[in-house]
Structures are given as C-alpha cells and as structure tokens.
Amino acid sequence: MHEAGRILVLDILEILQEHTDQNNRITQKELINLLVDQYDYNENLYKKRKTVRRHLEHLLRHEAEHPLRKEPKVLYGPKKESGEDEAQETNKNKTMTNFGYAHTFQQKELRLLIDSLLFSPRIPNAERKQLIEKLESLTSKHFESSLDLVRTTNKPQLLVQDLFKHIESLEKAMQDNKKVSFQYANYTVDQHNKLQLTNRQNSRGEDRTYLINPYELVATDGKYYLICNNDPFDNVSHYRVDRMMNVEIVNERRKPMRKVRGLENGLDLSRHIAEHIYMFGGQSTTVSLRFKKYVLNEFIDWFGTNDLYFSNQTEDEVTVTVKVNETAMRKWALQYALHVTVTSPRSLVEDIKDDLRQAMARYDL
C-alpha cells in the first residue's frame, strides 16, 4: 500500500475510533463527509467512493495488521438482510454501511474504572480529571455525554449486579424527559434467619410500584441515589439505585422541576448534598449547634465548607449555623452526642433529647 493509502487508512481508523462503537455506527457516506470536513480531504474524495470502500474492506479482511493495533479488534461490518446470501450482500453494498469500531473496553467497564477514580479521596482533583479524560479517550465520543448525568462527592462505593442497568435506564429517562416506575426493596430476615431483599408492599400485600419524576443521579457515601419527585406529591425524594427493582421508563412526560418544592430555582447539587448528608427526603432548615473544636474536621467532612457561619468561639468550643435536612441533623447529632449540642431550632432539640432518653432506657438493666 502506498504512503497516501496508509495515511487514509489511519484517518479512517481514527474516525471510526472517535465516532463509533458497538451501539453507534456510521455509513460510508458519513465517513467520507468526516474525512472532507475534519481531515481536509479534497471533495474529489466523493468521486473516489471505491477507494474508501476498498480500504474498509481491507480493514475487515486484515484488521489484525493495522499499525494502531496492539490487541485483536474487530470492525463491525455491514449487516445482511434476511434471506440474502453473502454474494448478494456484497453486490448490494456498493456503498458500505453500518460500520463501527470494537473498542477494547465496554462502556460499563469504563464507567466502573472511572467511578473508582471519582470515589477515591486520595487522588488530587487535577490528576483525577486527567486520568478520567484518558479513560474516556478509550471509547467513542458518545460516552462522555452519558457520564455527565452522574455526579459524585468522592466517597467509596460498592457496586451490585444490576446497578449499571438501572443507571442506563434512568439516564435514558432523564434524557428523554420521561417518568420511571420501579419496585423498591428492603433487607429482611427470613424464617431461616437468612438476609434477603424483598420488595416493599402496599396495603393489599402486593409489591408496591413507585412512579417518579427523575432529575439527577448522584454518587455519595459509597452509593448511587436518584434525586426525584414521587407522584403525586410535590416534594423532593431520594431513592437508592441499587435497591430499585424492575426499573422501567414510562411513556409520560416527567413533572417540570420548577413544580417541585425546593427545586423551583433548579438543583444546586453541591448545596443539596451538603444539606442532605444521609439523603433523607424533606425540607432543609437552619440549625445551630455547639461542639468541641476537635470535632471540626469530622464536621467539615460531613457538611463541607460552604455556607457555614461560626460564632461564640472559645479556646475549646465553637458555635456553627448551617442549613441542613432536619432528619439528617437529628441522626448526625446522635452519632456525635458526646461532642455536639444542638441549640436550635427548639423542636429539633426536643426531638434529640427524646431520642437520648429512649436510648438510655434501652441500657437500663
């Protein structure tokens, strides 16, 4: 093959790697358009369709020989029509169609690798970004747009078998502005004292089906959550994606975010996560608490650094005011009860005091 031919083959391979994968193919005509528009080939290339087709056929016959190859790869070629034999198909496809590049990594495998970087708190942000960009370059350009729908707060996570399937369905629903239905599972212990997942039941003892309006996927505290609205209510809900069962896209437009209480002005994800540290639903409220300074690092780990107001500092203690989900703060305050005192609102203070009294009663032997 002469030098010009080798360059054309390399350019064809580069286009196939960037623009195609197992789910996204291109035709010979689209390939020529890209060569002309992005690689500055002369428009006479349209008259040399046979040359492009010959190179494509060469790649299909000798794909193990091209210079960019380090491990075997397969170019997905033309599909046969039902009832056509191979010779008829070759004659039919004077212009070849339906070509894609078989990348080394499947997209779900790349997502797993990227998630491992996103959830690693020890990798600096700049290095993490560079590594993720390198991983994204191992597949087609179509992968980045789907990844943008998942956000992270950089905490470790364990995956379950159907998680990727659930995420793909939820991403599709959000892209198409559709609702989603699913069943939701809880852990229970059966009659043999074995742990199992069972779907939540309705009042009739049947598996309960949830119909929700999905808005955002978030990875936090080692788990994926869906931020959504549960029909027919008007507040924000959160669901663990790994506990969703039978996720299905419903052919019905989702409720606009502006009609959901708390999302009228859109979703500020960083603020939302900081206010919902345990991903409980419900409204956020302004809470004041006083704690020992040696707890400050743990407090920042949970609540971040934005919108915190400190006051009344002494050598050992400090007061902070933060906007947070009240149920989440109630749980967090119990976790750090030896070091933290919630001072307002009064209703939350009384709830925590009642929790502590009940906890003490369990230890009265």
Rank of each mutant, 00 (worst) to 15 (best):
H2R: 06
A4L: 10
G5K: 12
R6D: 10
V9Q: 11
E14K: 13
I15Q: 00
L16Y: 01
D21T: 07
Q22V: 12
N23S: 13
R25M: 11
I32M: 04
L34C: 07
L35I: 06
L35Q: 02
V36S: 01
V36K: 00
D37Q: 15
N42C: 11
N44P: 01
E57I: 13
R61K: 10
H66W: 11
L68D: 07
P72N: 06
K73W: 05
V74W: 03
L75H: 01
Y76F: 12
E84M: 15
E84Y: 14
T90P: 00
K92N: 12
N93L: 08
T95P: 01
N98C: 13
H103K: 05
Q107K: 13
K108F: 10
K108G: 05
K108L: 10
L112G: 03
I114W: 00
I114P: 01
L117I: 14
S120R: 04
R122P: 03
R122C: 08
R128C: 14
L131V: 04
S137H: 06
S137A: 15
S140Y: 09
K141R: 15
V150D: 12
V150C: 10
R151Y: 14
P156I: 10
Q161R: 10
D162N: 14
K165R: 08
E168A: 14
S169C: 12
E171T: 08
K178T: 13
V189D: 02
V189M: 04
N193S: 09
K194V: 10
K194Y: 07
L195C: 03
Q196T: 11
R204S: 14
G205S: 05
E206T: 05
D207H: 11
Y210N: 08
L211A: 08
L211D: 04
I212Y: 02
N213K: 03
L217M: 12
C228W: 05
N230V: 07
F233L: 07
Y239I: 04
R243P: 01
M245F: 09
N246G: 14
V247N: 00
E248C: 11
I249F: 02
V250D: 00
E252V: 04
R254Y: 05
R254N: 11
R258Y: 10
G262F: 01
L263I: 07
L263F: 15
G266Y: 02
G266C: 02
S270E: 15
A274P: 00
Y278G: 06
G282F: 00
G282S: 01
Q283L: 12
S284I: 01
L289A: 11
R290K: 15
R290P: 01
R290Y: 06
F291Y: 14
K293C: 03
L296F: 15
L296R: 15
E298H: 13
E298R: 14
D301W: 04
S311G: 13
N312Y: 09
E315D: 13
D316H: 09
V318P: 07
V324M: 09
A328I: 02
M329H: 07
K331W: 09
A333L: 04
L338E: 10
T341K: 15
S344A: 15
R346N: 12
S347W: 07
K353Q: 10
K353Y: 03
K353D: 04
R357D: 03
A359S: 10
Y363A: 11
D364K: 10
L365I: 08
